[in-house]
Every structure is written in C-alpha cells, then in structure tokens.
C-alpha cells in the first residue's frame, strides 16, 4: 500500500519541482547566468538576481547536516518514531527529507547519503518524495573520487 503523507505548499515554481520528481528525477533550478543552484524553487537567482534558469537534475548524493527523531505525532498520516534529516547536496543547496531504513540508530552528522524517490499519496494527489538513505561504503568512495 502506498504511504499517505501531508501535502506540500504549492505554487508556480514549486509545481515544477514536483513535476520533475513525478518524472523520476530530482531537479533544481540552475541559474543560466551564474550557474548557482537553488532550493527552494524561486522566481529569480538569490546570488545574481537573474530570472533565467534551467531545471537540472542533481547527482543525488549529499551529507547529513543534522537530524531529529519525532516522538510526538503531528500528522494522522505519520505515526512516530521517524527520522528527519537536513542534507547538504553535492551541488550546494540544503534540503530536508526522511532518512529511510533503521529508525532507531542516530545518524552521524556528515554521514554520506544517497537519494531514493518514494511514491506517496497526499490529499492533493500522488507525489514522488525525495528521500535519503545512508550511502554504502563503495558509493562513498565513488562520490569522493568524483
């Protein structure tokens, strides 16, 4: 059964973010003028102000900035405990997701993680959520070589 999740706030630019995920890719806006990559979606570049951008796929790897484990239930769809992580993407921006897998072990700050899309149902329809899992040792070596 597909998991149920709360729906995200939507808007012109956020819609594009979720549309790309629905096509199986996590894309972020890359500025056509200064190449900086931004999250969350926005009408212009926070570095140079340019409105010209291209939705570019991310590599899907990053590192844990921090985490919390929910013990209180805030949403009917989400019984605790569950882990939420902040992830610094290799491309620079920071995003939030759930850490999949073992929910009882504290993730290490700086631990390498790898993207995995998870299909969920929301009150506003189906979504493909960008989620994270701890990267295996060989993945880490690959990331560091690149």
């Amino acid at each position: 059964m597909t998991a149920r999740r709360p729906a995200p706030p939507r808007g012109l630019f956020e819609d594009a973010f979720w549309r790309h995920l629905g096509e199986g890719r996590m894309c972020l806006q890359r500025c056509d003028d200064c190449s900086s990559v931004r999250y969350p979606a926005a009408p212009c570049c926070p570095r140079c102000g340019s409105e010209a951008c291209t939705w570019a796929p991310v590599a899907g790897s990053g590192r844990v900035v921090s985490w919390t484990r929910f013990h209180r239930q805030y949403f009917a769809e989400m019984p605790p405990p569950y882990l939420v992580v902040s992830v610094a993407l290799d491309e620079g921006p920071m995003v939030v997701g759930n850490l999949l897998g073992d929910q009882a072990t504290d993730p290490a700050i700086g631990a390498p993680v790898r993207l995995r899309l998870q299909t969920v149902e929301t009150a506003a329809g189906r979504l493909d959520l960008p989620q994270w899992e701890l990267a295996a040792a060989e993945d880490t070596a690959k990331t560091e070589k690149r």
């Binding site: 995200p8 939420v84 759930n98 929301t122």
Partner: peptide, 9 residues
C-alpha cells in the same frame, strides 16, 4: 510549512 510531506512542521 515547507516540509510537511516529510512530517516536519
């Protein structure tokens, strides 16, 4: 509110 789908609000 941005991270509601991940249960973080």
């Amino acid at each position: 509110v941005q991270y509601a789908p991940w249960g973080l609000t």
